[in-house]
Nucleic acid binder design. Structure first.
Lengths: 126, 126
DNA sequence: CTGGGTGCAAACTCTTTGCATTCGG
DNA sequence: CCGAATGCAAAGAGTTTGCACCCAG
């Protein structure tokens, strides 16, 4: 019943940290392949999904298809470059105060919120 | 070259307004089927996609799979019920001031941002 | 030993696309 | 008429799942 420790988990988490640039599950898979070709895609998806559920990593749903993952779990925001698809961190004060207003206006009990900025990254602007 | 007016467009837009509850393309398709069984799913996706591109409706990417659509085009926010999937409008002051801070912190040229709240709707809370 | 984890391939969901046909202007 | 829009079915991307085998505790 207890969760087990496996080599695959270590590899996948290590790759996620190494890539750092908010990769998709598929990007993680590709990178894992380079050093550990025997790890299957299903395992990468399962491990990332499980870790995201447990809160040890973050799942970042982007507007365009694939979810990205972030090994940084502290609450922060992201910018998505609409030209190259790159994702960067945004440093900004918390918006926690928004939630109260929302509950008041619609009667929903809030559990969280998600903010995603879009634009063009410094490289694409040049 | 000019865009043409077709019956399908009218039907699809009418259904979108009628459903009002931020339906997915598939929900729109199902509803269209009831009265106009000859309209194909591809057309529903194409028409909704085109209208969203032109700005006559909004595409709302949700965390869970399918995109939802909104016939209300003025800028506003949404809450997603994690229990039943329902989407509601959120009345709240604009957050435009956020963008300046973001450009400063990461060097991205901002084109927009997206906010999505999550929680449980009044029905699911009871 | 035992059942959680893995690998593989097939299945699934949402969406897009190629192509022949239709029909609006 | 002419080409934008449609219908159909097949393909595509991203992700999940069933099942037999494997291995961590």
């Amino acid at each position: 019943m207890a969760e087990r420790h496996t080599v695959q988990k270590d590899i996948i988490y290590a790759v996620l940290c190494e890539l750092a640039n908010h990769p998709t599950a598929d990007m993680v898979y590709e990178q894992v392949q380079l050093t550990h070709p025997s790890v299957s895609k299903a395992t990468v998806y399962r491990v990332l999904g499980r870790m995201a559920e447990q809160g040890s990593i973050l799942r970042l749903p982007m507007s365009d298809g694939a979810d990205h993952f972030d090994h940084q779990t502290h609450p922060h925001y992201h910018v998505y470059c609409e030209e190259c698809g790159r994702v960067a961190d945004v440093i900004m004060p918390e918006l926690g105060n928004l939630c109260a207003a929302v509950t008041d206006s619609c009667g929903y009990e809030l559990t969280g919120y998600r903010v995603l900025f879009k634009g063009r990254c410094p490289d694409c602007r040049k």
